[in-house]
């Protein structure tokens, strides 16, 4: 969490009961239900639930943390520990406009410190504090992933990285002190015109009617059928001759249970199964047990003749489409031991 000094945090806590918070969070019911569908366990909702609290209150009061714990099915202290871990949850109220300036290495190179100093002077506060009128808070933050436009500046949740509106990006543009003055002016006017700020959807407008994670509370999503993808054919089929002995090898998926070797002597018009190939896992191949297999099969053909091989793999009952074809001519082993032809 980020925020202010210890006393301010304690002073800020709200005198609300959990029932009152539940009441106040009623408008969020649809989003909460959607979130609860999305994870295998409700616990996954926690970070998002804390966001919703911040959306409603503008910060994360402790009683709100209890609500977040409830909807995420975790203990309150778990939720508290988590809320305290992340810097973006605010421990106490902040100004209406939170100006965050990156103090990372790239932005410092681009004068982030000067820009922050300028802001401090223009607003009459130190970084970390809020102006007396409650309008502006300035924070120094870590890299905002906009280094190309450094010093990176966020106004509330929107990037200032172009001369136009917020979030309008212009390559290589950097905010100057004058740009910030202009924005402060503009935001002040905005506050005058609209005393009550609009709420910004803290989850970025999620879909509300997905079917959810199969099996989760309130979800209707069906699990994947086991065989939605075609069975895997054998890959990288090779046939190599050692004289009349032909070694046919290939790469098989771990799920392959059986593979038969087919041979064609008429250039691939007709195929005959000549045997099955042992698909136990080969040691030395990366991956856990159940990783790919590289089985091989040995055939015998007359020296000088040519044969084509392909492999038809099966995954239980399902037959994969035949592999690519490897052709080989059995070459005589020459005296100097040089090996025969390859596919």
């Amino acid at each position: 969490m980020s925020g202010c000094n210890a006393q301010a945090i304690i002073d800020a806590q709200l005198d609300l009961t959990i029932e009152q918070v539940r009441e106040r969070m009623q408008p969020y019911t649809a989003r909460v239900a959607e979130l609860q569908r999305r994870y295998a366990m409700k616990r996954g909702v926690l970070l998002q639930a804390l966001w919703l609290i911040q959306e409603e209150f503008g910060w994360v009061p402790r009683i709100g943390i209890k609500w977040a714990a409830e909807v995420s099915d975790v203990s309150p202290v778990h939720a508290y520990g988590v809320a305290e871990f992340y810097t973006m949850y605010r421990k106490a109220p902040m100004g209406r406009f939170l100006i965050q300036v990156c103090e990372g290495m790239c932005c410092q190179l681009k004068g982030a410190n000067d820009l922050i100093a300028h802001l401090e002077q223009a607003l009459g506060i130190h970084a970390g504090d809020t102006t007396e009128d409650g309008l502006f808070t300035v924070l120094r933050v870590q890299c905002l992933a906009a280094c190309g436009n450094g010093p990176s500046v966020l106004i509330n949740d929107e990037f200032l990285y172009g001369p136009g509106e917020l979030n309008e990006h212009q390559e290589g543009w950097s905010p100057s002190a004058a740009d910030l003055d202009r924005w402060i002016e503009r935001l002040r006017k905005e506050a005058e015109a609209k005393p009550q700020p609009d709420k910004v959807d803290s989850l970025g407008d999620i879909m509300l009617d997905t079917k959810g994670h199969p099996g989760s509370d309130g979800a209707s999503g069906a699990p994947l059928p086991k065989d939605y993808a075609p069975p895997p054919p054998a890959l990288k089929v090779k046939a190599e001759s050692q004289g009349s002995a032909i070694t046919v090898s290939c790469l098989c998926a771990p799920e392959i249970t059986e593979a038969s070797v087919e041979r064609s002597t008429d250039g691939g018009t007709t195929w005959a199964a000549i045997g099955t190939i042992d698909v136990v896992k080969t040691p030395g191949v990366p991956g856990p047990p159940g990783g790919p297999k590289t089985p091989s099969y040995t055939d015998e053909i007359a020296v000088g003749s040519t044969a084509a091989y392909r492999i038809v793999a099966r995954e239980a009952e399902r037959e994969a489409r035949p592999s690519a074809v490897a052709e080989v001519t059995a070459a005589a082993v020459s005296d100097d031991g040089e090996e025969g032809g390859k596919a």
């Binding site: 969490m1 975790v74 203990s75 202290v77 778990h78 508290y80 520990g81 809320a83 305290e84 871990f85």
Partner: peptide
């Protein structure tokens, strides 16, 4: 079986 303690912050 009753989580009452946690390490908060970072």
């Amino acid at each position: 079986g009753d989580e009452q303690l946690y390490i908060a912050g970072r």
